[in-house]
Design a protein around this nucleic acid. Structure first.
Lengths: 197, 197
DNA sequence: TTGCTGTTCCTAGGGGCTCTAGGTTAAACC
DNA sequence: GGTTTAACCTAGAGCCCCTAGGAACAGCAA
């Protein structure tokens, strides 16, 4: 019987494709094995188990998303960069819903695996770089980064969960949200003393 | 053998408790049945299946969250209301992580069940009510609501997923984010023509 | 060509899960 | 007390994850 020529990466990719097509919860060892024309037990040579596979998909997605954002924001600054960043984020989530939901999993990723992934550090660099033009200093910079990531992720997540009614197109709200965030960054409120509610 | 006295609500509550203690993915028919001292097949009298149970947990969580927010914002306005609203949201997510993640599920809830739930409509009313003081008109109002919900949900979700490093406390970033959102609402940017990128 | 080695992929099987079908038995009403 | 209506049960099919151990292929050496 001919070998299937599997590797951890090929298994991960098959899982990622399945996640996008059928939803992350349909990503099972059996389904992935079936898609690869192989028995499920064979996957355990390449991947530690289901949890490990999901973690690898999450890592793959994070890397891909970061790459898209890097390409989109290259050479841009100010609001251009902000919009390019945000649109790339949202478009990745739309194009790869299963992969994207994998990134939402509580981090239970093999640390050794994560250490080799370029994604996280690169993502942080990109975000801080995008905000450079707004002239924020720490800790406002960190707070702004967190606010932006929260908004991008939250918007995409609510959109995917069907959280927006049909009255107004999400796209229009998205554009306005980016407008709003831009003006917010330009007029970031000064920190006041005694704030720790 | 004495009856256990189950109802759909009691089954849902047991599932919700289990979700908070062990994570939503540990909410299985078998586990919930075990917790109730009953065989798993017995649950199907009260609940259509696992998907239905998860939907019910999501609905319960939405109602509870809305109630907390209503209590927190009662009698407040302006930034007070905004902060109370947001804090109640985040505190609910912290207190009931399993229930909260259930609300993130793509809506696959029994429509008949959802129709009887007071949550969604009430939540919308509350949010619009909170924004009344800022003097926004449609469609800006809808856009602002969506932005706020996105940010609240996104922040909580990233926080739960371990998405924030350890450099700065999430609490501090949260307080500053609310400051920022408040000033943003006070200076909501006017809509410009030709915006539809 | 033959034999050796390491890895890939297999079969077999245990245990947990969801859900259905159909039987009992407890509670509720006449 | 008898009848009816449900709640709860046992039994079982089918799918899932994962482990243990066997078979077969690829590469290399002699």
């Amino acid at each position: 019987m001919a070998r299937a020529g599997l590797t951890a990466d090929r298994v991960t990719l098959a899982g990622a494709e399945l996640a996008d097509e059928a939803g992350l919860d349909q990503v099972t060892m059996s389904q992935v094995a079936r898609r690869l024309g192989v028995k499920d037990a064979s996957l355990y040579t390449h991947v530690r188990g289901l949890e490990d596979l999901r973690g690898r998909i999450a890592l793959l997605a994070a890397d891909e998303k970061t790459l898209r954002i890097a390409e989109a924001t290259a050479g841009r600054s100010g609001k251009d960069a902000l919009v390019a960043f945000a649109d790339a984020w949202r478009e990745y989530a739309h194009a790869h819903p299963g992969r994207y939901t994998a990134t939402q999993l509580p981090i239970r990723i093999d640390p050794e695996l994560a250490a080799n992934a370029p994604g996280p550090r690169r993502a942080v660099e990109l975000t801080y770089g995008m905000l450079r033009g707004y002239g924020l200093a720490e800790p406002d910079l960190t707070d702004a980064v967190r606010l932006l990531r929260s908004t991008f992720h939250g918007f995409v997540a609510l959109e995917a969960a069907g959280g927006f009614g049909h009255e107004r197109s999400p796209q229009d709200s998205w554009v306005r949200a980016l407008d709003a965030l831009h003006t917010l960054l330009e007029h970031w409120p000064p920190s006041r003393e005694g704030d720790s509610a």
